[in-house]
């Protein structure tokens, strides 16, 4: 068991390192850098000509003239030893501040989406599997596939329209205007919960649909296993044996994918976040990449991927706790 944990932990560290390396290099790959960007902004801002010396000076000022590996070493060294994630060129602020402004909201939506997905997908998948080829199974399958196929931003627009039509108030963003800059209070939390359901449903929709399918398929496999018949032959009632044996066996993929919600939220839901004006990390990452604001984007990618890897590590631990075959071998 401890060896298993130690090994997983070592993998985790290694993965994070590789991610930091790759993300840093990838960000450097597009032609030009922040200095080029600034020069082109100056030019379009009315400057007739920007002398090459200025551009070089800008580069030196931000350390962009050094080779990539030196830049990487300085960047990662500062993060590890000083907790300094570098400086955002566009926001003229420390990258870490911006990251921690956005992260809690990303996390909240992520967490609620996972809960939403589980609460909806688990029972629906079980019901579909047990009542295979029934009318309700077909209905859930139909709804599930629609959930998978409809682009999320479209769903976001529809829900926004509906919420406006029926409550007279567009539930955009996570807070009502009066709470947007207010300090945290119970009223603000309640206000947030009022707004939260739309992004949670939208973000969770595709995940729910696919998890219903996964659960249904897994459980169908398990339902015909001999150990289910053994349990039935003992005299257990259908419901009790269902929960104790096949569902428990079919749960593994649920647990092992918990850690993946964060990247899908960040990667796939940028458009949704922009449409719904959500203060999550998706839009700001997109912007920083477009502006070639390298430390901000690299910082975001590093933090989010670290959290994802940690999430996967946690689900590995959960899996070991749930499944003795993993724990004892």
């Amino acid at each position: 068991m401890w060896r298993y944990i130690a090994r997983r932990f070592a993998y985790m560290l290694f993965t994070v390192w590789v991610i930091s390396l790759i993300s840093f290099i990838l960000i450097q790959l597009p032609p030009g850098d922040f200095a080029t960007k600034m020069v082109s902004q100056m030019l379009s801002g009315g400057a007739r000509e920007v002398p090459p010396e200025v551009e070089a000076q800008l580069r030196a000022q931000y350390g962009l003239d050094q080779p990539v590996y030196v830049q990487y070493a300085t960047w990662i060294g500062k993060i590890i030893f000083e907790g300094d994630f570098g400086y955002s060129f566009t926001y003229k602020r420390d990258a870490i501040e911006l990251i921690f402004e956005r992260l809690p909201m990303t996390f909240t939506i992520s967490l609620f989406s996972v809960l939403f997905i589980w609460v909806v997908a688990l029972p629906t998948g079980i019901y579909s599997a047990v009542n295979k080829y029934s009318l309700s199974d077909y209905l859930f399958t139909f709804v599930g596939f629609i959930g998978l196929a409809v682009p999320n931003f479209l769903l976001a627009l529809i829900l926004m329209f509906l919420s406006y039509k029926f409550s007279g108030q567009a539930l955009i963003g996570l807070f009502s205007p009066e709470f947007a800059d207010a300090p945290w209070s119970l009223a603000k939390v309640l206000d947030m919960l009022k707004h939260l359901w739309i992004p949670v449903i939208i973000v969770g929709m595709a995940g729910t649909a696919s998890l219903i399918r996964t659960m249904r398929a897994n459980l169908l496999d398990e339902l015909n296993k001999p150990y289910v018949e053994t349990a039935r032959a003992k005299g257990l009632s259908e419901l009790r044996l269902l929960w104790k044996y096949p569902v428990r066996h079919a749960l593994n993929p649920f647990i092992s994918t918990v850690g993946w919600t964060l990247p899908t939220l960040v990667g796939g839901e940028v458009i949704v976040s922009i449409v719904l004006n959500l203060p999550t990390s998706g839009p700001i990452i997109l912007e920083s990449l477009m502006q070639q604001d390298m430390y901000l984007s690299a910082g975001f990618i590093l933090v989010l991927s670290t959290l994802t890897v940690v999430g996967t590590f946690v689900s590995d631990l959960l899996l070991a706790w749930l499944d003795p075959r993993i724990r004892l071998q």
Binding site: P226, Y227, T230, G235, L322, D323
Partner: peptide, 26 residues
Amino acid sequence: SAIRDIRGKEIAMIFQEPMTSLSLMH
């Protein structure tokens, strides 16, 4: 419940595959 009272209590059953007929997670 009538048949469930008989299963395991009055008529018990042993299956062919001891590997798969027991749950490996319990």
